[in-house]
Design a protein around this nucleic acid. Sequence first.
DNA 1: TTCGTCATGTAATGGGTTACATGATTAC
DNA 2: GTAATCATGTAACCCATTACATGACGAA
Lengths: 199, 199
Amino acid sequence: MLELAVLGLLQASPLHGYELRQRLKATLGTFRAFSYGSLYPTLRGMKEAGWLCEDDGNAEVVAGAPPLTGRRGKVVYKLTAEGKERFQELLAEAGPTSWEDETFGVHFAFFGQTDPEVRVRILEGRRSRLEERRESVRTTLARTRSRLDRYTLQLQEHGLESVEREVRWLTELIETERRTAPPAASHPPPNHPRERGAP
Amino acid sequence: MLELAVLGLLQASPLHGYELRQRLKATLGTFRAFSYGSLYPTLRGMKEAGWLCEDDGNAEVVAGAPPLTGRRGKVVYKLTAEGKERFQELLAEAGPTSWEDETFGVHFAFFGQTDPEVRVRILEGRRSRLEERRESVRTTLARTRSRLDRYTLQLQEHGLESVEREVRWLTELIETERRTAPPAASHPPPNHPRERGAP
DNA sequence: TTCGTCATGTAATGGGTTACATGATTAC
DNA sequence: GTAATCATGTAACCCATTACATGACGAA
């Protein structure tokens, strides 16, 4: 997740950790925030995995008096070839994980680099996930409405409206996608054999 | 968090794990879901902490041939005195944690049992948290709007609208609270007769 | 010279999830 | 008698957070 986001941002240009985090905020907006405490270790891990390497900016630093003590300077990372591959791989992934609350936003943020078909599948996947949730809430709400106090009711209804709103948003996006890039080929339609969700 | 939710539900009536989880879904709606994998260990932990105990329903199970092998039956939990205390303690807590995304919903769900003043403080805390976030997104959006692609922009704006919507919701709730239970014994206008206060 | 912000990092911890394993009860 | 669902539980892991520690650099 952080991984995908990092790959996506470094794809555009090499960055050091600190700035990466600012971009993360700018890119993900209200959806998610990451702390340095997770960012730096992730960066190290990704470097060890071979997806990132340090970028010396083709180095022409006039080597006058460089990092004397303790070497504390910006560490700029860039993607390796494997990193780019990995990014493409993650982008192509249109499975259940890409519909999750926390993940969807990140995937969406990189839709610009995602295959149109994959885009639609992710959008639809997310939508049907939300629709399920909506129906589930609606029915339990119908069953229990009378027993709920003012606040619980408010909570349910606000939640329900949020979900409905997002469903409408997704529907619009899907239609736009369809208008922009009409059905390429046919894939076995809405056949998600549910997984996840508690036993 | 799960802890608070469990205390809140058991406050109403003794329940076993499985049913607890159904209630959790019904109570928290779209906000949050918990898996059994976290529920049962939590239950055990809370029992060990002394907040819960097993409820034999005044027992009298005709002890004829009880759980022969392996003892697998419903385990009904109820609150102990310490548990009730703990619940009250958590309910009274109107600090930053109570306005976090994941926590707020749970606190809100038990507003019926929360002190009116605490309610308002939580609502206001959450609101100002969201307002901060909104401003932060607005400004970075203003700075970077032109550099963002279609999708990133969509994401930002949808997120922004969500936040704005929740802020409006909170504002309405706060006003309702104020109308229902006017400023108790506080400093601002020293001139109001009180009615209908907390305990 | 001190403060704020830029910048990097680690250790401890947290709060949950997934996948698995098992068994009891009910409905057909 | 078998499938669904009710019911309880464990172990391994995941992904991040908090709190802390350090230090460079520019502006007041």
